[in-house]
Design a protein around this nucleic acid. Structure first.
Length: 525
RNA sequence: GGGCCGUUAGCUCAGCUGGUAGAGCAGCAGACUCUUAAUCUGCGGGUCGAAGGUUCGAUCCCUUCACGGCUCACCA
């Protein structure tokens, strides 16, 4: 039995909710801007628990709610035509146009972006669009229940408020038929389906039938528990902001029991994640959010999942874009070797790593240990080939025998490596092989020229049947014969080859470059 | 003011349902005629924040306290 947190939570759901034909796990967010990786933690947490439940043989409904009937409160920083968009403030975001004009609405643009990225990491929930639900009057009964239990709801919320809600407070808001805005005031309710509101901008009064128009919407703290009951949600985690006493999850759990007659879902609290090694904030209000797409530029889907599967939800962690990236890829590869029994650790650790590896896969785990291409090595290969992925991979021993899936993964990793090298690697990590056509030769001392001649001689004999170490040692001999300090010769050679004082370990580097290419550079000395 | 979470080797942290603590980095010693945060080998007795309690036995459970962080009470 696995002690992974996803399995523990799956067991907990079954224990607390009893044996059911189907369990409903839910997640969701308001698409009022680019969805950032912080929000991703919630959905992947649910995905992992859903997988655990399914693997235990349970049927699971995995819901993702887009709260696209929420109000457009603030024009996002990324919008250039601000004046035009200020017109839409207080509208439901589902009616606000897409600033890029690609999708039918601002909400849809944000939704489509995330949905596409989620698919890449193997997360395919059933999406529910709350604007569609509300506007189809799906929740008429739920809204009426809230109206009927208005006093009770107010009393629940007041338990946690510093200043109590006024007597004229209603547990519902209305988008005006005349302006689309929620700048309205409820003025009456007929005790059944008729709700009357006053539109403050147009000064008009209007009565709607909850069963026929979708203008009415429950505020968040009531909407959430109403939908728990409607969708019969068994599990939904939430961020720590919601989980404090008096926070929205807490009031929702009271409301769902006392008003909607449903038990609150099993839950856990997940902590926030931060970003290390690059600029950009996590809040959606500033334009500079780090999205799932941004993270996937540097992390393969499996490695990204590994990051979350390997970390307990209630601990904070940072997604790194700095040199940690190399370490994380190495850790992932190690985890993979442990899964395939190629590296031995104690059984307890092995069991844990195996489970993490399974949960990290987008699809089923490979049948056998895939050829691993160390991230750092891949970076060097790409640098040698100026970022040409095909050329870099062709230098990998055995690459031509890879099957299609292996090739696909290798290319994916190479793309991440190249993105990382270009965007985030430290400057001294990068190098550029000199092009003899366009670069003037350096001036050398006599001893250096002798050494270069010696190296040419070695290269002319071919490198293919020499080991990295052998080539490396050859350079020492050359240095000694030329009367140079090896250290100085190394520096000189790097200057000649990559125009920097340092570079990749020379033995392997020369072999990877290939004798002909190196000779073309050395020929001029 | 309420709630939640931390406090474990110099640093970063594992230790998930109690049996007297582990890993990475740093450090030290040795090897490598070198250079990717260089590589290899060896070296880890730290009152597990403090004090009580439960237990045959607690880093892991309970209580209290100290320090640190987050969060709620406006909206989602």
């Amino acid at each position: 039995m696995s002690s992974h947190w996803a399995d523990i939570n799956a067991d907990k759901i079954v224990r607390e909710k009893g044996e059911k034909d189907r369990y409903t796990c839910a997640s969701g967010i308001t698409p009022s801007g680019t969805v950032h990786v912080g929000n991703f933690r919630e959905i992947i947490s649910v995905d992992l628990v859903v997988r655990a439940l399914r693997e235990k043989g349970h049927e699971v409904r995995f819901l993702y709610s887009w709260d696209d009937y929420d109000v457009f409160r603030k024009v996002p920083a990324t919008v250039t035509d601000r004046e035009r968009f200020e017109e839409y403030l207080r509208w439901p975001i589902t009616l606000v146009p897409d600033p890029e004009e690609t999708y039918e609405s601002f909400a849809r643009a944000n939704e489509a972006e995330l949905e596409g990225q989620l698919e890449r990491v193997g997360i395919t929930p059933e999406y529910i669009y709350q604007a569609t639900q509300y506007r189809a009057s799906t929740y008429a009964r739920g809204i009426r229940t809230a109206l009927e239990k208005r006093d009770r709801i107010r009393e629940i919320l007041n338990r946690f408020r510093t200043s109590p809600l006024p007597d004229e407070w209603w547990p519902v808001s209305v988008f005006s038929r005349f302006t689309n805005r929620d700048t309205t005031r409820i003025v009456g309710w007929d005790g059944e389906w008729g709700l009357t509101y006053f539109c403050e901008e147009s000064g008009q009064e209007d009565t709607i039938d909850l069963r026929e128009t979708g203008f009415a919407k429950l505020p968040w703290r009531i909407d959430w528990p109403m939908r728990w009951a409607w969708e019969q949600v068994d599990f939904e985690p939430a961020g720590k902001d919601h989980h404090s006493e008096g926070g929205s999850f807490d009031t929702a759990r009271h409301v769902v029991r006392e008003v909607f007659d449903w038990e609150p879902p099993v839950t856990f609290q997940y902590d926030f994640i931060s970003i290390k090694g690059r600029g950009g904030k996590m809040s959606s209000s500033s334009g500079e959010v780090i999205s799932l797409r941004d993270v996937l530029e540097v992390y393969q889907p499996e490695v990204l999942r590994y990051l979350f599967a390997g970390t307990r939800p209630n601990s904070e962690f940072a997604i790194s874009f700095d040199l940690d990236v190399i370490k994380i890829y190495e850790d992932y590869d190690k985890c993979e070797r442990i899964y395939f029994g190629q590296e031995t650790v104690n059984e307890k650790r092995a069991a844990k790593e195996r489970r993490i590896y399974e949960l990290s896969q987008v699809d089923a785990p490979p049948a056998a240990l895939p050829a691993q291409i160390p991230f750092r090595h891949l970076c060097n290969l790409l640098l040698i080939h100026d970022g040409t992925i095909d050329a870099a991979l062709a230098d990998m021993p055995g690459y031509t025998e890879f099957d299609d899936e292996l090739k696909r993964r290798a290319r994916e990793r190479a793309a991440c490596a190249w993105n990382w090298v270009q965007e985030f690697a430290p400057d001294d990590f990068r190098f550029h092989v000199v092009d003899p056509e366009t670069t003037e030769p350096r001036s050398l001392s006599d001893a250096e020229r002798t050494a270069v001649a010696g190296l040419r001689k070695m290269l002319a004999a071919g490198l293919d049947d020499r080991s990295d170490k052998d080539v490396q040692n050859g350079i020492y001999d050359i240095a000694r014969d030329a009367g140079l300090e090896p250290k100085d010769l190394f520096r000189t050679l790097y200057l000649i080859l990559v125009n920097q004082e340092r570079g990749p370990r020379l033995g392997g580097f020369l072999k990877t470059l290939g004798a002909p290419r190196v000779l073309r550079i050395l020929e001029r000395y």
